[in-house]
Design a protein around this nucleic acid. Structure first.
Ligand code: MG
Length: 556
DNA sequence: TCTGGGGTCCTAGGACCC
DNA sequence: TCTGGGGTCCTAGGACCC
């Protein structure tokens, strides 16, 4: 184990919801729930105000509405989150070139690999983290929680303990004392199933794991998991921070508002998914050998069928034919709620030529490379990026399918002040697959049906300018006209097909320092009890857990 | 209207090879 | 005759993470 807390873990607080609160001034201080708004949607992120009502990530949106009916329910706007994420990751990059993003809002940083490595100790690392949090707040208006520790394992646990809006530092000699009392679920890789299995044998805390024989853990939880559990419980974790990771698979899936039963319809949806998957594969400059079809049945049982080709492909025609072959093996009786298409065993684009059509002999001689399976005809092997004309199709599809212009049923972001949109609207429940609504997947609205507006969506009105959809139903759409830098805006209601109203791109979350003519009153000073944000030598920092201030208001 | 979407890693059995 | 040992690839499923 390292002798300094040089691993930093950053975790933005209630990230999606917090971005929405900064972007939509009228929502600051109010419960905000971001996720799927359809009948089968789930919560991605709930603001702290919504969490007070028991709303949690992964909860069904229907349950969230029951618990917090007055919250704003918004669809995710990933373009906006990615923009903020890039900015935050850029700030991390100033601390070290070794930044490992785990998601849009989380990353590890190895401070010992960067410009502050020299003389790094607990006090200097702490000062860097203090400054980082202040910089993030100043640049985005968002709070972040940070953990500093000698390992990834403990840094992640520390940032969790720091939430919200805090900093926790765990020096090396505090690691065991920090871990011991925590429930097993706090360990990375221990989920509901493992925790329950542990409970049955009387293991409930990390100290319990540490006190269990390693062989016993291997017997109970498998080779890899058992070994890791034992080491991690003892605070041993040498995993390095890794900056660039190549994706190993690309996949796309949709859950449908209504179960699909018709094989022709299912095939058509698989074709659309294959096109989206290949589009993303090509955009990443990758190709893959294994094609995977995923299905979730009416009863939530999940099955996958996969086929490995003789060489990597990024050809839509090849992927589509493979998908058809795989789907033909499956019984759809009872209905299908989810379909997915993926490509795995990814290769870099350049490697593809190794399997090109003029290398039959070489491929045959190469040990176990080309003859692993017998399942694919030579004619189905991709010949490269120039491949078949079908490869152009997905781009065309996306071009005529703008994001978020249609969706399910009457939706309202906000209950308060908005008519609850009587249950009139939407498709014909008696024949769900025939109409537009049956075609509408939860997160990827189809391009069929009349104009739909989704809550949270960015729009622009020719006269009143930029705003966002607060709700829609019974032929009307309600828009709130405000922007990240404005005061809370007022609402106006339009007919859903009003030609003056158009979907628009997300506005940038302008930095407060650039936005406000008068400088902000340095909010970070009020929030931070810690020393100067300079990486200068300091007296030994408090090696205690919970060096963070009390929770701040969620939104400025 | 219970239960999203995008990933990673591990296990286990059979095929196949040496 | 008490069954031998790997190693790798492929497939299916499952746990887990955000
Ligand atoms: Mg977070």
């Amino acid at each position: 184990m390292r002798q300094t807390p040089a691993i930093l873990h950053l975790d933005m607080d209630a990230f999606y919801a917090a971005v929405e609160q900064v972007a939509k001034p009228s929502l600051r201080g109010k419960p905000v729930i971001v996720g799927g708004v359809g009948g089968r949607g789930v919560v991605a992120t709930a603001s702290y105000e919504a969490r007070k009502f028991g709303v949690r990530s992964a909860m069904s949106t229907a349950e969230a509405r029951r618990r917090c009916p007055n919250a704003a329910f918004l669809i995710p706007r990933f373009a906006a989150y990615r923009e903020v994420s890039d900015l935050v990751m850029g700030l991390l990059g100033q601390l070290s070139p070794l930044v490992e993003p785990l998601s849009l809002d989380e990353a590890f940083v190895d401070l010992a690999a960067g410009p502050y490595a020299d003389g790094l100790d607990t006090a200097r690392a702490t000062a860097l983290a203090v400054r980082l949090r202040a910089d993030i707040l100043a640049a985005t208006g968002l709070t972040a929680s940070v953990g500093l520790a000698p390992s990834k394992l403990v840094a992640k646990i520390a940032s969790e303990a720091a939430k919200p809006d805090g900093l926790v530092v765990v020096p090396p000699d505090q690691v065991r004392a920090t871990l011991d009392p925590l429930p097993v679920r706090a360990l990375w890789g221990v989920g509901p199933a493992t925790a329950e299995a542990m409970r049955k044998v009387g293991i409930t805390t990390i100290a319990d794991i540490a006190a269990t024989d390693a062989d016993e853990l291997v017997r109970l939880f498998g080779q890899a998991h058992g070994r890791a559990l034992h080491e991690h419980a003892l605070g041993i974790d040498d995993r390095p921070v890794v900056a660039e990771r190549d994706a190993k698979s690309v996949s796309v899936e949709d859950t449908f508002e209504v179960d699909l039963v018709d094989r022709t319809r299912i095939t058509a949806e698989l074709d659309r998914l294959a096109a989206r998957c290949v589009e993303r594969l090509r955009a990443a400059g990758r190709s893959g050998r294994t094609v995977v079809v995923k299905m979730r049945r009416y009863d939530f049982s999940t099955l996958t069928r996969s086929e490995t080709l003789r060489g990597p492909t990024d050809d839509l025609a090849v992927v589509r034919e493979t998908v058809h072959r795989l789907a033909a093996q499956v019984d759809f009786t009872g209905g299908i709620r989810l379909l997915g298409v993926g490509v795995a065993s990814l290769a870099d684009f350049a490697q593809q030529d190794l399997f090109g059509d003029d290398h039959e002999d070489a491929a045959g001689d190469a040990v176990g490379v080309a003859d692993a399976t017998e399942t694919t005809d030579a004619t189905e092997i991709s010949t490269g990026p120039a491949g078949s004309a079908a490869g152009a199709a997905p781009r065309a599809v996306d071009a005529i399918e703008p994001d978020a212009t249609s969706g399910a049923a009457p939706d309202a972001a906000l209950a308060p002040g908005v008519d609850p949109a009587p249950e009139s609207a939407a498709g014909d429940p008696a024949d769900p697959e025939a109409g537009a609504y049956g075609r509408v997947p939860v997160f990827h609205p189809g391009r069929f049906g009349s104009t739909r507006w989704l809550p949270g969506q960015d729009v622009t009105h020719t006269e009143h300018g930029p705003g966002w959809v607060q709700g829609s139903g019974v032929g009307r759409v309600t828009v709130r006209f405000e922007t990240p830098g404005s005061a809370p805006g007022r609402i106006r209601t339009y007919l859903v097909d009003d030609p003056d109203l158009t979907p628009s791109a997300a506005l940038p979350l302008v930095r407060r320092t650039e936005l406000d003519p008068k400088p902000e009153p340095e909010p970070q000073l009020a929030l931070e009890p810690e020393p100067e944000p300079e990486p200068a030598p300091k007296p030994p920092a408090e090696p205690e857990l919970g060096a963070d201030p009390p929770p701040a208001p969620d939104s400025p």
